[in-house]
Nucleic acid binder design. Structure first.
Lengths: 225, 225
DNA sequence: CCGCATCTTAACGGGGCCCTGACGCCCGTC
DNA sequence: GACGGGCGTCAGGGCCCCGTTAAGATGCGG
């Protein structure tokens, strides 16, 4: 998940970078409109945070420059409270408009909301590895072109891991989300189901390359072994 | 374009109705959470404006009640400025959060932005398998060149599955869309009708190749077995 | 009022899913 | 080298979910 932060204030860029990185986002930055469009074209981000007060061009032109070729979610950050400014930005194609000063928690929630929607639009949240493919939207797993049938519990676990691909997911989190709040220490459940998932998905279940266990901590879904 | 306005303040409802009607929207209204969910289920709106201070239930419960079966855009209107309230609503599935008082122009722009995002792709009006063909536009099913006669309920179920061909459709979603929000646990209805559909459509009803059941999760329409 | 089509409801058998406990393995520590 | 914690593996039993059937409601047109 890459976020492009566009702002001419180095202070804000720095604060954003720290906060977003801490939440697990990749952060790219740009100080003006021209370099923002260039950066977005070079490696398209998954979301854009756009400050309106840029030195070289109008914020609206940046929005239109992006909207010419991409549907990436754009959240506008601005010190201007004027209603007409909000209306203009939103109608030019921005997805949300947040006025400074704002709380980081709120911004993060709005980022999550925007991201959730765009996943729905692109309609193909698919996580692929060399040996199998997880289609989160269709709730289906393929391996060597053939469908693999998972039980509800197996799917539930795999879904959480796949949605956090590359990141460590704690046993507590898995147990809580799958079995409920009362089951946070039954780690043997996890062992049984991880074994079943590996048997169904891993080329060599005894030496897993994608469903990795981090001893004492949790499990991690690894896309490319 | 239908908008459902949920607010317990008759004054606001009235103002909303006038403003939105003037912009060409159809307006439905509800004064509390229960009737909002009921109204949404009866004839699904294209967007929901939701006030958080409802007399009968928490706003969050209304969001979750909707999100259980629909992706309709939800814009929360609230007098509470607290960041934690915003975060909670957005993470529960709201698309936007606007604090009162707000300008009608801004709200209209946010409605347009939400609406713009939620436009999805049209699906093919005809879904074909090796053994039968479903014409969604004409509401007809053919098998071996001969028309198959379906009852209204049978058709309703088949239509939902065919429009989501390849994807898993939860039992909850099927029950909600066919029988209504009060029947979300009568899974035996589904069993009876899936059996009837299979008897009418599958070459070998005992070993279905197109109307697949995923135990504990739902059903899936499979084009090519 | 009757007959037909459709929907609802209940009961039953079977298969698969989830839980559970036991056992062995690999590592660290002592 | 013994020990224990964490993990992987396996198999059996209970139970839930599903498919099937058929009889009782319900609604509609004649």
């Amino acid at each position: 998940m890459r976020i492009l932060v566009v702002d001419d204030d180095a202070q804000i860029i720095r604060a954003m970078r720290i906060n977003l990185r801490a939440r697990g986002y990749d952060v790219a930055t740009a100080f003006d409109g021209a370099s923002a469009l260039q950066a977005a074209a070079k490696s398209p981000p998954d979301l854009v945070l756009l400050d309106l007060g840029l030195p070289d061009m109008e914020g609206g032109d940046v929005i239109e420059g992006l909207r010419g070729w991409t549907q990436v979610p754009i959240i506008v950050l601005s010190a201007r409270h004027s209603a007409s400014e909000k209306v203009r930005s939103l109608d030019q194609g921005a997805d949300d408009y947040v006025t400074k000063p704002f709380g980081m928690d709120e911004l993060l929630a709005r980022i999550r909301a925007a991201q959730r929607r765009s996943v729905h639009v692109e309609e193909a949240p698919v996580v692929a590895t060399d040996s199998f493919t997880v289609d989160l939207g269709a709730k289906r797993v393929e391996r060597d072109g053939r469908e693999v049938r998972l039980t509800p519990t197996e799917w539930h676990i795999l879904e959480i891991l796949a949605r956090n691909a590359g990141r460590l997911v704690s046993q507590r989190r898995l147990l809580h989300d799958v079995w409920g709040p009362a089951y946070q220490s039954e780690t043997n459940y996890l062992r049984v189901y991880m074994a079943q998932l590996r048997r169904k998905l891993e080329p060599d279940p005894a030496h897993p390359r994608h469903l990795i266990t981090e001893a004492g901590m949790g499990y991690r879904f690894e896309k490319s072994g």
